[in-house]
């Protein structure tokens, strides 16, 4: 049984973040701008912000994927890991095509990171490269010590990521399930939303668990099955 479970784990489809598996909701313009970024030299810097679970990291990964598909090189800095990383990770990156920084707000007040990012940012733009930065707040509200960095964050094309309402979250879950070949009914999706963590990040993690369990048990994603699996896990 254990082996079968293991097999199921390996067989599970992994979601490579892309624009196709992002439920757009009210974010059409942001998605369009990001999708055109490899060829857009007029606005090389895009900044978008939103709450946890609004899809920022997904969109950022989708941009990385897009650049990868164009054979363009990418530097990606997840600042949730800042304490395990060294600012040297940003050395000499200007020969890459895109700089992505996730969760800029997390290093606000840390002058070492702020200065390094400031320098790296200037260098990228001076070399006509692209930059995408995400944060939980608008540039004007970033508590950065380095005002030079803050003003630069304001200079980009800035978007607020619109958070999904319940209907949007259900549609988003169903889209994700469909892309995995899973049939998730409205009632099952609503059940997840009503009984577990409601942010999309947590919802997708739950879907991942259910996907593996359904494959192992060869069952459909019915409400009783979901209850069975999630109450035990």
């Amino acid at each position: 049984m254990r082996n079968l479970k293991q097999l199921a784990l390996n067989l599970c489809l992994k979601d490579v973040a892309s624009f196709a598996n992002f439920f757009i909701g009210n974010n059409q313009q942001l998605v369009a701008v990001l999708g055109q970024l490899p060829a857009n030299n007029a606005s090389p810097f895009v900044y978008f912000w939103g709450q946890l679970g609004s899809g920022k990291s997904h969109l950022l990964s989708a941009v990385c994927q897009l650049f990868g598909e164009h054979n363009l090189s990418v530097a990606y800095l997840p600042l949730e890991d800042a304490e395990h990383l060294d600012v040297q990770i940003l050395d000499d990156l200007e020969n890459l095509d895109l700089l992505c920084i996730d969760d800029l707000h997390l290093i606000a007040g840390n002058l070492g990171w702020e200065e390094k990012i400031f320098y790296c940012f200037n260098n990228f733009l001076a070399h006509n490269k692209k930059i995408v930065i995400t944060s939980s707040v608008a540039p004007q509200a970033l508590p950065l010590k380095l005002l030079d960095l803050k003003s630069r964050m304001m200079s980009g094309l800035v978007f607020a990521v619109q958070t999904l309402n319940d209907e949007g979250k259900i549609a988003s879950l169903k889209l994700r399930a469909e892309l995995r070949g899973l049939d998730l009914s409205d009632s099952a999706a609503r059940f997840l939303l009503n009984h577990y963590e409601r942010d999309t990040k947590s919802l997708f993690m739950v879907l991942d668990i259910l996907d593996k369990a359904a494959l192992t048990a060869q069952r459909r994603l019915t409400v009783p099955f979901i209850k069975d699996i999630l109450d035990c896990s």
Partner: peptide, 24 residues
């Protein structure tokens, strides 16, 4: 995204060279 994407690759005389942006 963090570690593999910044790598650039080059092949010369059948030898694969993986180029890293910095020593870190």
């Amino acid at each position: 995204n963090t570690w593999i994407r910044p790598i650039q690759a080059r092949v010369e005389e059948g030898v694969l060279t993986l180029l890293m942006p910095n020593s870190f």
